[in-house]
């Protein structure tokens, strides 16, 4: 169903873990954007780099793939849709160029997701939040601390809401909601229950945050660029340079 369902921070002491969150985040942002413009050379280099990072961070290739198993199903689906051409709307035919294009597209999506998984599994939310504050500070009209706190809350809430969504649809099925054929009715019921529970969760969260003196101006993590960040940035630039190769 979802890639994030299983992705969470995996503690460790690898270079990837020790990298400054700002470096990681900027690299993920730049490289995922570049993916859409990148050709084979770039994607190949990026794939190798991601694989090395996975091994280096002790996340491991197998675990990395397992974390996104649901996404792989989705990817297969996307591939089939894109690769098939319907000739005169009757029979599906395979056109080599189209299959290649579909492969390239799926490859890009895969790399973007893998980078996100690596980022989340090696960076605690606190660090992501601190990096976000740093990046948003120059922007006018943005309360960077509130924004960063809210992004942190999303990380906390999404798995919970996904879980609740599963529970609700199970509960609806066990109460024979299928018998009510109207899809409108089903969608209404599902959505109302999902929102209700999420809002109640939110109330608990407000209480928990307030009980511990929530304060926008709270102490942030100390972040420091090191030599490691320079090395990582250098590698990033090298990978980006392959964009110019056909």
């Amino acid at each position: 169903m979802a890639a994030v369902k299983v992705v969470s921070y995996q503690p460790g002491d690898s270079a990837l873990h020790r990298l400054d969150p700002r470096t990681k985040q900027i690299m993920v942002m730049v490289l995922s954007s570049a993916c859409f413009a990148g050709g084979r050379w770039f994607l190949g280099m990026l794939t190798i780099s991601i694989a090395l990072c996975a091994i280096e961070s002790r996340i491991g290739l197998i675990r990395l793939i397992r974390e996104i198993r649901y996404f792989l199903v989705f990817l297969l689906f996307v591939f089939i849709i894109r690769a098939l051409t319907f000739n005169d709307g009757l029979l599906p035919v395979l056109v080599v160029s189209q299959v290649q294009a579909a492969l390239l597209f799926c490859w890009r999506l895969l790399l973007i997701v893998l980078m996100a998984v690596l980022l989340i599994s090696t960076t605690p939310t606190g660090a992501i939040r601190a990096a976000l504050v740093w990046m948003l500070r120059p922007l006018p009209l943005v309360n960077e601390r509130a924004a960063a706190t809210m992004v942190g809350l999303i990380v906390r809430m999404v798995p919970l809401i996904l879980f609740q969504a599963g529970e609700i649809s199970d509960a609806m099925r066990s109460r024979c909601i299928e018998a009510r054929k109207s899809p409108l009715f089903r969608m209404n019921r599902f959505t109302i229950m999902l929102f209700r529970r999420a809002i109640i969760r939110g109330d608990d969260l407000v209480d928990a945050m307030q009980a511990r003196c929530y304060n926008e101006q709270r102490t942030m993590r100390v972040m420091q660029f090191t030599k490691l960040d320079a090395v990582a940035a250098g590698i990033g630039v090298l990978v980006l340079a392959t964009l110019s190769l056909a």
Binding site: A2, A3, V4, V7, Q25, V28, M29, S32, I68, Y70, F71, F74, L75, V78, L109, I112, V113, M115, A116, V117, L119, I120, I128, A131, L132, M135, V151, I154, V155, V158
Partner: peptide, 11 residues
């Protein structure tokens, strides 16, 4: 910032 929140778990 790369969190997988868009369709299909991309970001």
């Amino acid at each position: 910032v790369g969190l997988p929140v868009f369709a299909g778990g991309t970001g």
